[in-house]
Amino acid sequence: MPNTIPLGEIAHARSGDKGNHANVGVIAWTDAGYEYLGRVLTESRVAEFFLPLRPKQVQRYELPGIRGYNFMLSDVLGGGASRSLRIDSQGKTLGVAILGMEVPAPPNVAEMLRP
């Protein structure tokens, strides 16, 4: 039995740009998942995951009304929409990327899956 699961089993996400910064919004499918993400999806864990993009700072904000965490990743877009040399100059795919992050499998994972 694997002891990790991809984040995408218990959450959905969307990302976008603000100048050279990206925001990655992660939304738990259930209340149990939101509570769990609060513990495992820390600023330092997200910063570590996106380390290859060299974020200057990662800040986490809470949206309990929608079971969401919003992560602001500073200076990760290689100059932003018009200056970035990357195909994804606006960080559109970072939301999909974070759903591939492996997190420890919680014992009550069944309560966190997409209904």
Partner: peptide, 8 residues
């Protein structure tokens, strides 16, 4: 997903 899109 749209609520959280491109916000700080």
């Amino acid at each position: 997903e749209q609520l959280i899109y491109e916000i700080g």
